[in-house]
Design a binder for these strands. Structure first.
Lengths: 158, 158
DNA sequence: ATATCTGCAAAGACTTTGCATGAGA
DNA sequence: TCTCATGCAAAGTCTTTGCAGATAT
């Protein structure tokens, strides 16, 4: 395996082995990038970034890897309305605190917020429990986002 | 204007006139459909349905009208992860009670739920107020969705 | 009358698929 | 060794754009 910063044995290796998936350079590189970035990266963002270190990795592999990671529950996939999916690591040491999103419908900017998450947590858990029971649904995750106009876009649309 | 069920003067006409938009057959037909349907229609769903009554209306117009309606705040646009946008009327007499979504990541089925909306409302309002202030954001709407597996998909993945 | 709206065709953007080669375990 | 994973190219989908003709006010 080629040498690169941060590539080596990691907490996710067991998850891969237990599930029978191989630990490959592209997978490590992508997980490693997600682990040290706290932005909302698109598949292409990830491709371009990973490509700097491993030029052999193709965009197709990025898409396939992200799909795998989402299915494994290691990565969250979001849609902020600009026509491309965004990805965020869901767990691990480098992960951001549990948060939700504030999306500007003017310019597409996304702000992570962590306020009220505590108060929210109880309500969310209660809702999850009830909905699981009532609709016979196995709930894995939730998404909350507020849509509106950021400071700059408010001025422009005034 | 051709004759069709439900087409005629409606509550949304003022909204159009005040904003300087014209009231046209395609716009009325699309609003009318959204008003009497409580499903999560895609642009193509809407096109096919409207097309039955007004075969002259094209898919492009459907997209353009939906964009307009979303911008006017008359329609909500959702992404349930299947690669196509879904639309729901946000207001008016035919509108469903305020609700959120439970999305099956296995088959894509979407359930509207209205439980806990009341408890949620207070938290959401408080969060909105605080986030508006802190981030100088003008919040227009919010989306909450739970992701998981529906009854059938749980059985298959067991 | 005239600025807005529409439909068609074509283009654009993101994502997925087919297939032969390459690489983990 | 022997599947699983990858890369390239091509195809597939959904959505947007250009432009001439039609329409609402």
């Amino acid at each position: 395996m080629p040498r690169g910063f941060g590539v080596g044995p990691h907490w996710w290796c067991n998850r891969f082995q237990d599930a029978g998936f191989r630990i490959t350079v592209p997978r490590q590189a992508i997980l490693d990038l997600l682990n040290r970035t706290h932005e909302h990266l698109s598949a292409e963002d990830i491709y371009l970034e990973v490509h700097k270190i491993y030029p052999a990795i193709g965009l197709t592999t990025v898409y396939r890897t992200l799909e795998l990671l989402v299915n494994m529950g290691l990565v969250f996939k979001f849609d902020f309305g600009d026509g491309r999916a965004r990805y965020e690591l869901s767990q691990g040491p480098g992960t951001l605190k549990h948060h939700h999103h504030l999306v500007c419908t003017g310019c597409g900017r996304v702000i992570d917020y962590t306020e009220f998450i505590e108060q929210e947590k109880e309500l969310v858990h209660r809702t999850e429990r009830e909905l699981s029971r009532k609709y016979n649904f196995k709930i894995d995750s939730h998404q909350i986002q507020f849509l509106g106009l950021c400071h700059n876009c408010q001025k422009e649309n005034k």
